[in-house]
């Protein structure tokens, strides 16, 4: 555990809670891609299956349970409780174009050809692109609420902080996980355009326009 890893995890947690609270308080999921949220629920489910097989630390277990719980709560709010406010027409990204190639890649390139390890790899690859339906939706409608941009910023910041965590771990522990690093770089790069807009336009303008 280092400062980048911890702040990365907390940033990730903040993003998840910001989104959940935004939907709950406004009683609306307008502008939120339900498809991205389903992908994140799949990501957490397939990655944290090791909850059942190995114990790493209380911190690790608690965070995993919280992430999974919040992911499903978000999906429930979007597709059940506040379904009437869900903007399905604008959430038109074809997720099969992500899931199928990612599934194939995780079978081909992994650390170990075992079910749990392939699912872990699948979750890493899928996470790197899971935000695309959300970014697609924003580019389609041309705007996002300020709070949605804070959500995206925290989510992007989390992966950027993980990159620093991996640099730290490489230098001080000699540890590196090439699959996580490459996917993490891809994931962070996807946010670069958004980061730029967030900093140059997003602070004060509302609603946020691309």
């Amino acid at each position: 555990m280092n400062v980048f890893r911890l702040t990365g995890d907390l940033s990730h947690l903040a993003a998840i809670i910001i989104l959940l609270l935004k939907i709950w308080k406004s009683r609306s999921c307008a502008g939120i891609s339900g498809k991205s949220q389903i992908l994140f629920a799949i990501v957490f489910t397939t990655r944290y299956l090791d909850l059942l097989t190995s114990f790493i630390s209380l911190y690790n277990t608690c965070m995993k349970v919280i992430y999974i719980g919040c992911a499903y709560a978000t999906v429930y709010l979007i597709y059940a409780k506040f379904r009437a406010t869900y903007d399905g027409n604008h959430d038109s990204f074809r997720v099969e174009f992500l899931v199928v190639p990612v599934g194939g890649l995780s079978v081909l390139i992994n650390h170990d050809f075992s079910p749990l390890e392939i699912l872990w790899t699948f979750s890493i690859y899928l996470e790197s692109v899971a935000i695309l339906p959300q970014l697609f939706m924003i580019s389609k409608t041309g705007e996002a609420e300020t709070i949605t941009t804070h959500y995206l910023f925290c989510l992007g910041l989390y992966r950027a902080l993980y990159l620093f965590n991996w640099i730290w771990r490489f230098y001080f522990e000699g540890f590196f996980d090439m699959i996580a690093i490459v996917a993490g770089v891809v994931q962070t790069v996807l946010y670069c355009d958004f980061f730029y807009l967030y900093v140059t336009k997003g602070w004060f303008s509302r609603p946020y326009r691309l």
């Binding site: 190995s54 690790n60 992430y67 650390h111 075992s114 996580a180």
Partner: peptide
């Protein structure tokens, strides 16, 4: 020791 790869990160 763990069998296979251990993933301690989230």
């Amino acid at each position: 020791a763990d069998e296979g790869t251990s993933h301690d990160e989230l």
